[in-house]
């Protein structure tokens, strides 16, 4: 049984800099988490939805609604965008948080962050250039589009993208490291604003007007929140703790 008090699963502490394969994680037992894995299998943030204020409920629940067809990206770009989002978030199976859709919505409605690097185009043009650049690099390396490349090839391209090592063609029109930060800002905001991701990480979510009472150090878990646990049969865990 994995011991979460120990940090041995953390990438910085492992020789290859990568976490163990997620198969060691428990399956989600209540609610939904991305790929149905997580550290809090008995926690569903949606169980507290009745305690959220009206305005917050409206905004958060809208993220669970099915989204329509893409408005900003064309079909070719959509394929590359989906592949990019899957790789940078390691979403390799359903259920997936619809991150590509949230980015499309942001770009279509012009909901930008309020600054543009002097040596970079507008965020919307940056996105289109990056998607084109990913296809260009994938084509040069393996003859496929980025979406059709193998996962290993995709990950190698993203590794080079994240460290600013891509160059040539489209990449020379922008600063790749800044482009990486522009894209990831939108990706992370799309993923970690979704209640499924909150289930995965055990985040208590909106708390107005109820507030939080258990700030620590004695206890940090509200009654509706659940401790991190594993995939063991809960009955055995309870039995074990009493024996």
């Amino acid at each position: 049984m994995p011991d979460f008090r120990k940090p041995s699963h953390l990438p910085n502490l492992r020789s290859d800099g990568q976490p163990p394969h997620p198969s060691w994680l428990p399956r989600q037992r209540v609610g939904i988490s991305p790929q149905m894995i997580g550290r809090y299998p008995d926690f569903d943030v949606m169980s507290a939805v009745d305690t959220w204020d009206h305005a917050t409920k409206k905004v958060v629940l809208a993220r669970l609604e099915p989204s329509g067809p893409m408005r900003f990206f064309d079909t070719e770009q959509e394929k590359t965008l989906r592949a990019f989002c899957d790789v940078v978030l390691a979403q390799d199976s359903e259920p997936r948080v619809p991150v590509a859709e949230s980015i499309d919505e942001k770009m279509a409605s012009g909901q930008l962050d309020g600054y543009q690097y002097a040596d970079m185009p507008d965020d919307r043009e940056t996105w289109k250039a990056v998607l084109g650049g990913l296809d260009q690099t994938a084509g040069a390396r393996g003859g496929h589009s980025f979406a059709e490349a193998t996962l290993a090839d995709q990950e190698a391209i993203i590794e080079d993208f994240s460290t600013g090592k891509l160059s040539g063609g489209i990449w020379d029109q922008l600063d790749p490291k800044r482009a990486w930060s522009v894209c990831m800002r939108a990706v992370l905001s799309g993923f970690y604003s979704h209640p499924w991701a909150w289930n995965e990480i055990g985040f208590g979510g909106p708390a107005y007007p109820r507030g939080f009472m258990r700030l620590g150090p004695t206890s940090t878990t509200e009654p509706f929140e659940k401790h991190g646990s594993t995939s063991e049969d809960p009955a055995d865990v309870v039995k074990g703790s009493h024996s």
């Binding site: 994240s162 993923f191 990480i201 940090t220």
Partner: peptide, 23 residues
């Protein structure tokens, strides 16, 4: 927190692992 993890150089599976460790 995700932006913090990204700034330390993690994405993909490593990002998800650090994020699951949030608490």
């Amino acid at each position: 927190w995700a932006e913090h993890v990204l700034a330390d150089g993690h994405w993909g599976r490593a990002m998800r692992e650090y994020m699951r460790d949030y608490n």
